[in-house]
Amino acid sequence: MAASEAKRVLLVIRHSPYGSSLARASIDLALAAAAFDQDVSLLFLGDGVLQLCPDQQADAVGSRNLGRLLASLPLYDITQVYVDADAVTRYRLDLAAAPVTAQALDRQAISQLMGSHDHLVGF
């Protein structure tokens, strides 16, 4: 890798888990970044919080289970996982049962989080 200095990258994930191939692509990018020792954080925003639904039955729609993939994030040393608190409330999501531990942030904290990174990659 020819990168001169480590960049802090935030992946902003707005797609629900089985409505778009970009949902899977965003998690694949997180894993690829971790494999190259990049400092990567994840923010599930808006409909993207649905990726944190517990007990996803992906086989019912003929897809691979995204929740299971999310559960593997700590194995790749991806621990900076954040979630949009407003959307969690709107979808009545039980974060305690989510496949990966995520910290809920209000709008102001999300704004600060975005400001503290060098690059945002928006999906």
């Binding site: 020819a2 480590a6 960049k7 990018l29 690829a32 970044a33 190259f36 990049q38 990659v121 928006g122």
Partner: peptide, 21 residues
């Protein structure tokens, strides 16, 4: 090529600009 090319492109850039998504 693979996603590693995107990872490297992000790491090396001063600005990343995304179209679509």
């Amino acid at each position: 090529s693979g996603l590693g090319q995107l990872v490297e492109a992000v790491a090396c850039a001063d600005r990343l600009v995304t179209f679509g998504g």
